[in-house]
Amino acid sequence: MPDIMENSAELKKQNQLLEVWKSLKKNRLAVFGLCLTILLILVAIFADVIAPYDPYSNDLANTFCYPCRAHLFGTDNMGRDQFSRVVYGARISLLVGISTSLFGMIGGIILGSIAGYYGSHTETVIMRAMDIFMAIPGTLLAMSIMAVLGQGVGNTILALGIGAVPRFTRVVRSAVLGVKGNEYIEAAQAIGASSFRIITKYIVVNSLAPIIVQTTMNVASAILAATSLSFIGLGVQPPTAEWGSMLSAARPYIRDYGFLVLYPGLAIMATIFGLNLFGDGLRDALDPRLKN
């Protein structure tokens, strides 16, 4: 008997996930987005296997080779295989996108839940500070931070992560305000739970849905921002295979060898498109009000 009961509880837990998956599955665009995203992740993981050439080895006898069977996406001014570089670029982009979002998410959860839970002056100080950050255009903020910290993958993540914190803070705070009014929060206070415990075990876990959606959406915008930063010469530096810096390096040859900007550009577009579709679908699936 106990086993059956435990199993049924397990089943119920799975059922909730299953339900989200079911309503996500109905949304064809979201499934398409998910497939694109999974493809991207697979490409990033198996880059060594997929890429036919070393993305960093020059072949000066073979520069500006048009796309052909040997070089699917052609070669650039150094004779490097573009296809291999695009494939390796997926690694950097995903790394930057995901780490930035996690950074923003953690920062946002900490600040947003403190602001939402304690309210009054604490909230005013945190939220106004976030407003100040949001008043600065994202790229400008990232550029200033990069200018101070220097270039590189780690610093790109940090710069974009700091820029992402305010939006997360707002999302988390509004979710927390919604959860805070529930009687179980008061009940938790009445059994003598500490504020830390209430925030972590009661408030944050109950406001996860909007946080997850925001994180997914943020991966896309972070990848875009990171490529923009590399394009203008901050961020990830050449010769690292990164889509933005590839675009930037190909710029002088755009008239004669358009394919050099075409493929990295397409890679960026497909990634953002896939992530946004998936994020939208996830938001709809997690929001019970949109269920029909």
Binding site: N182, E183, Y184, E186, A187, A188, A190, K201, Y202, N206
Partner: peptide, 13 residues
């Protein structure tokens, strides 16, 4: 200890 009015909302889901 306190028992709250509405059991529907006084447990953490």
């Amino acid at each position: 200890a306190m028992i709250f009015q509405d059991p529907m909302t006084s447990l953490n889901p």
